[in-house]
Each structure stands twice: as C-alpha cells, then as structure tokens.
Amino acid sequence: MQIFVKTLTGKTITLEVEPSDTIENVKAKIQDKEGIPPDQQRLIFNGKQLEDGRTLSDYNIQKDSTLHLVLR
C-alpha cells in the first residue's frame, strides 16, 4: 500500500509499505529515499509519536495515510 510522509519543509515522500511493516522498517525506507538516519527521525500520526517496535496496523495506518516526519 502507499503512504505519504510529510516533512517540515513541506516536501511529501511517497512510500510503498505493508500494514505489517514496523515503524523501524518505515524509517529505513525514508533513509533509503532521503538519506536521513533513522535515529534522527520521529514519525507522528494523528498527533501520536510512533514507536519503532510497533507496526503500521497497530496504529491503524491505512493506505494513503499521511505521517509527519520531525527531525531531532
């Protein structure tokens, strides 16, 4: 499925993911596309910070959902 990740600069990254993917996996995909190390990434969905060990389906993230990427 496709999800979107919006950065603070207003750029939107499109990712191909599975609901069973962990947040860690998603961060690795963002690193592949953008070169941002996962330990600098914080992903936010519906105002909640997403934890590495959880999956997209844990957070009820579905296709065409938009996550927000904050760098630390």
Rank of each mutant, 00 (worst) to 15 (best):
D39S: 11
D32M: 10
L50A: 03
K48L: 15
Q49M: 12
I44W: 15
I36Q: 10
I44Q: 12
V17E: 02
R54Y: 15
N60H: 10
E18L: 08
T12P: 04
K29G: 07
L15Y: 04
E51Q: 06
E18D: 14
G47T: 13
E24M: 10
E24Y: 07
S20Y: 06
E51H: 15
L69P: 00
S57L: 08
R72K: 07
I23D: 01
L71V: 07
T14S: 09
P19A: 05
N60K: 06
P38K: 15
P38E: 05
P37Y: 13
T66W: 03
E24P: 15
S57T: 07
V70L: 04
T55S: 12
Q62D: 09
K29A: 08
K29S: 15
N60P: 05
T12N: 04
F4E: 11
D21K: 07
K11L: 07
L56A: 02
T9M: 15
G10W: 02
L15G: 00
E34F: 05
Q41W: 05
E18N: 09
V70M: 04
R72E: 08
D39Y: 15
Y59V: 04
V5L: 11
G47W: 09
Q62N: 10
H68T: 02
I30R: 00
I61N: 00
F45R: 08
Y59M: 06
L56N: 01
D21P: 01
K11R: 02
P37D: 13
V5Y: 03
E51K: 03
L69S: 01
L50K: 00
T14R: 12
Q2V: 10
V70K: 03
T22A: 12
N46K: 04
T55P: 03
E18G: 03
V5N: 00
P38H: 15
S57G: 07
K48G: 08
G35L: 06
N60R: 09
L43H: 01
R42F: 12
T22N: 12
E51R: 05
T9S: 06
E16S: 14
R42S: 14
I23H: 04
A28S: 08
A28Y: 08
L50I: 05
L67W: 01
F4G: 04
L43M: 06
E34Y: 03
H68P: 01
G53E: 10
F45W: 12
S20R: 12
V70Q: 03
V70I: 15
T14M: 13
R42T: 06
E16Q: 12
L8F: 04
K11W: 08
D39V: 15
P19Q: 14
I61A: 02
P38W: 06
S65P: 01
I23N: 03
G35E: 03
E34N: 05
D39T: 15
N60G: 08
Q41A: 08
R54M: 11
I23T: 13
E51L: 05
D64V: 03
I23M: 02
P19S: 10
P38S: 14
I13M: 09
V5F: 09
Q41K: 02
I61T: 02
M1H: 14
Q62P: 05
I36W: 04
N46H: 15
P38V: 14
T55Y: 13
K27A: 02
D52E: 14
T7M: 15
S65Q: 03
N25S: 10
M1S: 03
T55L: 10
R54W: 13
D58H: 15
A28K: 10
R42E: 13
S65L: 03
T55F: 05
N25D: 04
H68E: 03
T22K: 12
L15P: 00
V26L: 13
K29L: 09
K6D: 13
I36K: 04
N46A: 12
D32E: 12
H68I: 03
Q62T: 07
G53M: 10
K6R: 14
N60S: 06
I61P: 01
T9I: 14
T66H: 15
D21E: 15
I36D: 05
I61Y: 01
L56P: 01
L50E: 00
P19D: 06
L8V: 08
P38N: 15
E24V: 02
Q40S: 06
R54V: 09
H68V: 02
I30V: 12
D64Y: 04
Q2F: 12
M1N: 08
N60Y: 08
Q2W: 14
Q2K: 05
I23W: 01
Q2L: 11
I3G: 00
Q40E: 15
K33W: 10
V5H: 00
Q2D: 11
P19I: 09
T14I: 13
P37I: 15
I61K: 00
S65D: 05
D64M: 04
T14F: 14
P37Q: 13
Q62A: 04
Y59D: 02
I30K: 00
V26R: 00
L8N: 04
N60W: 15
L71H: 12
L69N: 01
G10T: 04
R72I: 13
